[in-house]
Design a binder for these strands. Structure first.
Lengths: 224, 224
DNA sequence: GTGACTTTGTGCGTACGTTCACAAGTGCTT
DNA sequence: AAGCACTTGTGAACGTACGCACAAAGTCAC
């Protein structure tokens, strides 16, 4: 009756990054009325290797039944809980341009676990508008606002220029998780997480690989 | 399954993913008139370890000068060339909803290397509209269109439902690089690359880490 | 209860990624 | 021309990730 060295504390980052994919695949299965799923089926739906899926899930606990598979609803709940989606996370979006609009209206937020509680912008002509049912506030009110309504996750949807300043204000408001859509690197103090979503980066990575596919000839480049 | 971790000329995938970041940092430096940069400075700007930066760059060649650093313009060109940005890649966006609108109007495409050549949507009430200077075409015209105007990169900005079907049509049209914004896994044949940009996934990863922070003292503000 | 069958959970070899630390190379100063 | 200050490029060590293959553990039929 001693310590399990692996689980509980340390879930590998690579695993965490895949949990949302499993979650989505499971939701889809649940919607179709599937009650039980094998690692092979779920792995195919998630686009990964089944051994990898099993190892990933084993980090959460032993939620499968040998010879049977995984109970879809139970696994859904366990992954949701592990990801912290059994509670609602208040989200604030800063920068209500084209992208900010799209984000504010995006149903993806509404999916379990996240709630957009405030919109901010620096442009006086945008402040005061109503977007997706929320009044756009001045970014200057950010820190004050956060005193009354805590913000768990800040979304930076501004151009690159003001992004660092906006990020600093989010941090000053107590935000420790930032999702950055601006095309720049954000500097944050220890304890603050930043994740970047970047169209240009993704395109450039695709371009790199595309460039190497030059021979559009199936008979070529089979070996080595 | 040719899921090779490194590319043919031996550039690790992890390195490729960081090249766009270096590129951006270098552009910023160039705009400010900086002519030469050390690995330490560039690494700080890019938010990475300097040894990692040097090793990454060493995969492209020996473009630095010991005792001096890297010539900003020269390195900019070399990375651009490696990423395939010295040519223009024709991009098609499918799904002109909120997100598609934002993408079509996003300057990030125009900057360098990418050109949006066509917009597609399935909704008859959207088809025919002009968005960002382009007429929205019916998605049914996709394959025919691609016969006249080649498409290198297809952007899927539809809801999850039609995403796989849209992707199949892109592949049928000869597209071998897909950027997927739809919240689902796309199945593609060998030789086709898919990269996923997913708001929900990123939020969920942030939520996971957020949940593990918080020694339960939300009132305490990080200050000074 | 027994045995055939199914599927999980994981030990292990391999490959990949990151960081340290330093030799090797470059420019500047004297 | 020699020494010094600086920075790159990389060998080596360590850590992480992946996927195979299989024992363990369960179900089901009878």
């Amino acid at each position: 009756m001693s310590e399990e060295p692996t689980t509980r504390r340390g879930i590998p980052e690579a695993t965490v990054a895949r949990l949302p994919v499993y979650l989505r695949a499971l939701s889809s299965l649940a919607d179709r009325g599937v009650r039980t799923v094998s690692s092979e089926e779920l792995a195919t739906a998630a686009g990964v290797n089944s051994a990898k899926l099993r190892k990933d899930l084993s980090h959460l606990g032993s939620y499968g039944v040998r010879g049977v598979g995984y109970d879809v609803d139970y696994l859904l709940y366990q992954i949701s809980r592990e990801l912290g989606l059994t509670q609602d996370w208040p989200v604030a979006i800063v920068g209500i341009g084209n992208l900010g609009h799209a984000l504010a209206g995006y149903g993806g937020f509404a999916t379990r676990g996240f709630r957009v509680v405030a919109l901010f912008d620096a442009d006086p002509s945008v402040v005061g508008q109503t977007v997706a049912g929320l009044r756009v506030r001045s970014v200057d009110e950010l820190v004050d606002f956060a005193r009354e309504v805590p913000i768990a996750i800040g979304v930076v949807a501004t151009p690159a220029g003001p992004a660092q300043s906006v990020c600093d204000q989010l941090v000053a408001a107590g935000v420790r998780s930032v999702l950055n859509f601006a095309p720049c690197v954000l500097q944050v103090p220890d304890g603050v997480d930043v994740r970047k979503v970047d169209l240009s980066t993704e395109l450039q990575i695709l371009a790199f690989h595309e460039q190497r596919k030059a021979p559009a000839d199936p008979s070529e480049a089979v070996n080595e």
